[in-house]
Design a protein around this nucleic acid. Structure first.
Lengths: 214, 214
DNA sequence: CGCCGATCTAGAACAAGTTTCAGAGTTGAT
DNA sequence: ATCAACTCTGAAACTTGTTCTAGATCGGCG
């Protein structure tokens, strides 16, 4: 798996659309078809069912083109996670969680996110496995996913100006969220245990909280 | 990757030696040669360099035999991690960490473990990636690795009779340890940040501590 | 000793991720 | 409208994890 095989030419950006070459309409549509096909296949058989040839066929794109958009299966799945997290984040924003303390709100939001992913366990499994399996060649994309996770937690806590300590706590919470997700998906922990652990780790937020100045 | 391919016959137990058919001396030797070859190869090129054919050749065993001992590359790497963690645990036990609070001792021990794995980053990378990539067919072995991690933390904190809350904290600490390890190995975080996050999460121990009764 | 079943070996065969390439299709600038 | 550069397609080839098969070895037992 010679994973450093990034095209150096002006290939369609497999990450986000922001800093890249504009991507024509047709290209944007292709990209979207690919991501949808990926999610669809993952939603059935999980990680193993996302076969590059199938994704290509299912999204009506040649195999070579698929690889031009996403340089590896891992890139593809991480991009899919990115995509799904965006939706999730938007959904979660709409109904901010109730709760006295920041910790409670964080735990509430994370459990809601957890349940959302539970609804499609095979898709979740494929995405999260790809995320943790990713090597350096996917760093940038993985980083973005983590940023999104961090943003979700920060949103939930309503912390406007977090201290370094709080940022550390938020990172730890993100790590725990991903790990418990994997643990649950692998059948090594119950939902109850996940809930307990999420609540436990979220206490770190209050522990490191500075009094909020309005 | 049809990973549920466990032989159902009386195959050499790929997990620990405890509950299995005794394993003759020659077989024990084979198993050890395989694990050593695996560690050696991983120590050079990391995950990708652990190629089953190479492992087989390098440990003077036929490919089929390798698969009889370890039903997949993931099983092999998880077993290797198990093996390395045993050594590490033994080493760490010898010099218990200094520190006033349980949290400090836990953080100290984990950072020591972290530095031990740092010395062989490619090996660590291969093992940890295998660990988080493992699917249900490897649950039992993964579970054992987590148990070992938990044991290391509990040893460090010197908690003899942990409450359920403390166990949750210890699980969270274990998750964080693995995640930060991956994050560092992927070049997405500095050692300093890892140290900070480990210290942050270890506070959970004191937070949930019941007064110890001697 | 000589046999039996389990284990090991060598090597072919198969599956899925990845790479490569020649030719057809698009696009943008002149 | 035309040309050059880029992009997409279709198909084959290559790599590495995994499975399968036929025969050689081993260990215990009568």
């Amino acid at each position: 798996m010679p994973a450093d095989a990034h095209r150096t030419k002006a290939a369609p950006d497999a990450g986000r659309a922001e800093p890249a070459s504009p991507l024509t309409e047709r290209q944007e549509a292709r990209r979207r078809r690919i991501l949808e096909a990926c999610a669809r296949l993952a939603s059935r058989g999980g990680f193993d069912a996302v076969q590059m040839r199938e994704v290509a066929e299912s999204s009506q794109v040649a195999l070579g083109t698929l690889y031009r958009y996403f340089p590896s299966k891992i890139h593809l799945l991480v991009a899919t996670m990115q995509d799904q997290l965006e939706h999730l984040h938007a959904t979660l924003r709409k109904k901010p969680p109730a709760g006295e303390t920041a910790a409670e709100r964080a735990a509430g939001t994370l459990m809601r996110a957890f349940r959302a992913l539970q609804r499609d366990p095979l898709l979740a499994d494929a995405m999260v496995r790809a995320l943790t399996f990713a090597d350096r060649s996917v760093s940038a994309e993985v980083e973005q996913v983590f940023r999104r996770t961090t943003a979700i937690v920060l949103d939930a806590t309503d912390l406007t100006d977090p201290t370094p300590e709080q940022l550390s706590a938020v990172r730890v919470i993100g790590h725990t969220w991903h790990s418990t997700l994997i643990t649950w998906l692998s059948g090594r922990a119950s939902i109850e245990q996940v809930a307990v652990d999420i609540e436990t780790v979220c206490r770190l937020i209050d522990l490191t909280a500075a009094p909020r100045v309005p």
